[in-house]
Design a protein around this nucleic acid. Structure first.
Lengths: 340, 340
DNA sequence: GACTAGTGTCGAACCGGTTCGATTCGAACC
DNA sequence: GGTTCGAATCGAACCGGTTCGACACTAGTC
């Protein structure tokens, strides 16, 4: 492969001049610049990434730490990954995908060997092991998911408290008086999926304030179970007229459950979920939902990370950016059915 | 960060000696090796990846070219990605994930800048644009998906022809005489998804040979449509007793279709799909299926690629490795119902 | 006409590893 | 007792970029 030395030789200048001609960091005569550019074309010169990284201490790569848990619904993760890689590329960065179970060792390994300029952590837990190593690392990081202690790091997440309130409020305003909330499984919460209780607590408070009854259930994240559980829940709460789903698997299972009971939304029951638009399309879910904004979160995390890497960050202070919930109305809410 | 120079100084030896002590490429006294190792511990020394890449021309990174098409079922892709990244890490490689639409430019960019030691291409089309640049690249590559011209490159794929035959054969042996095959949408095929017709043609031939009627239909890959199409198909072919699905979305949609028609597998109809075990779990699909072996294909592709990179490849000749279809029996096949 | 300022170019050093050739030393050999 | 060999170590060069300081030349200033 051609090196910058080859380019310089063909152009009849020194290596340093060729370098300056390409980077524009010093003034160069139009004539020389022209010759260098021609040599680049002719040799199909592309700088060696390793050499560049060594010289500049910049790799133009960001590390993406994804964690896949047995108890989670994997397809939902894909949205985040795509959001990050696509936006990163637009910003001039490539993405090193790290899926090892041991996120801490992945982080320290990659960080110490200077393979990346920064990190993005997905699926951040309330008390995430990876945060301490990240704080100590010389590279900046962005989190997707709000941990208990977000100090020193930029955080991006959906505002789950506002989401819980909005779900309850929306149905209460339509006249619903008894609701069922289905969350992720309890062990997701125990593992540190704090968003589960952030949404649930806020929903509970809002319900109390509005005088609405709210039943809360931790659902499974796999299908035969969650379907049965939904069925049982509807049996257990015959007067409930609204269903709130903070559980992707539950949303995916609901159509067949409703069908088998011979009821439909919103005629017999109103439904609000919380999942991404892509998820809804993939599974063809006909329910109004609050967008989990996966791609948007990934994009914001990348943009902020890049501005930190490149030192163009507007503020030195770290940021906690909670996206306000936004409802995608697919027509699955209505006034409750009248009973007699 | 500590460099090998720091290690050498603390250990009281030259840089080259420190390097040899760590690599073991020349004999080193036990005493010196000990001192170097202590210095490494003390300084938490980790080699700089860029410098190492520059010196050795090895990056220990492989490039993973994934393509996401609107008309495909995205979650299925995740299995391949995880299969590749996890196996790569076990082999000592990290993975650069490239999701740009323009796979050719991604390939040439990464290849020319020497960011990776090899490539894995997913979702390879019959006539894939990326193959020529890959052949010209200095790095080796493995394909997941069989193209029309696999020359000079290692290829890994499910044996779709054998899959088609096996599907038909299995139901024919049980006594079925009229089958319906639902493939991916026709534009997947036009884009170069040759596996669609490889399976369909083989199924057709096998059916002809066994004297079985086979109706072939290109189904949609999104849910409200594919559900309706399945319903129409069952109406159109009332005497069909077996359903073959080479279309993930169709498999995901089938449970509610059958339910709404008040029929069930295998009592009223026998079903064989083609999707991964993980996919079946995620969607809780109760149908016997031929495993698309995504993770296994990813693993084989990585292993072969690594052996090429490291020059330990058993043979110089390129390989076309078609995995024999394997049936995961979930009990959705039986003898056809008797009519009168 | 000497002084200054700015422009354009070059050589050398540096980033942090690896590797080749040379050197020293002690043990084994004839 | 000189020769040969292998083990252990070191210095220097190299990988392919970037960047600093020096220098030559031109143009403008007083």
């Amino acid at each position: 492969m051609a090196t910058i030395g080859d380019v310089a030789r063909i152009a009849g200048v020194s290596r340093s001049t060729a370098s300056y001609a390409l980077s524009g960091k010093r003034s160069i005569s139009a004539e020389v610049r022209e010759k260098v550019e021609q040599a680049v074309q002719q040799l199909r010169y592309t700088p060696n990434a390793g050499a560049k990284a060594l010289a500049t201490s910049q790799t133009k790569v960001i590390g993406l730490l994804a964690q896949f848990f047995e108890d989670e619904f994997a397809p939902a993760m894909l949205q985040y990954i795509l959001g990050v890689t696509n936006r990163a590329r637009d910003c001039g960065y490539d993405t090193l995908l790290l899926t090892e179970e041991d996120g801490v060792s992945a982080l320290t390994r990659i960080s110490a060997s200077r393979m990346v300029d920064g990190f993005i952590l997905l699926n951040v837990a309330e008390n995430d092991d990876r945060l301490d190593p990240l704080r100590r690392a010389p590279q900046p990081g962005s989190l997707v998911g709000l941990p208990g202690d977000p100090s020193e790091i930029d955080v991006f997440d959906l505002d789950f408290a506002a989401t819980g309130r909005l779900m309850v409020e929306t149905l209460a305003e339509l006249g619903h008086r008894e609701l069922v909330l289905v969350s992720q499984p309890e062990h997701v919460l125990q593992r540190g999926g704090a968003y589960v209780w952030r949404l649930a607590n806020a929903a509970r408070e809002q319900a109390a304030e509005l005088g609405v009854t709210l039943h809360h259930h931790f659902g499974s994240s796999t299908q035969p179970q969650i379907g049965r559980e939904l069925d049982d829940l509807l049996d257990a709460h015959p007067n409930a007229t609204g269903l709130l789903l903070n559980n992707e698997a539950a949303a995916a299972a609901l159509p067949s459950v409703l069908q088998s009971r011979g009821i439909s939304a919103p005629r017999d029951i109103s439904v609000i979920g919380r999942y991404s638009d892509d998820f809804a399309r993939t599974f063809s879910l006909p329910y109004t939902a609050i967008d989990s904004a996966a791609a948007e979160l990934g994009r914001r995390a990348v943009e902020h990370l890049v501005s930190r890497i490149e030192g163009t960050s507007d503020s030195e202070k770290t940021v906690v950016d909670l996206i306000a919930p936004q409802i995608d109305d697919r027509g699955s809410t209505a006034v409750p059915p009248t009973r007699h």
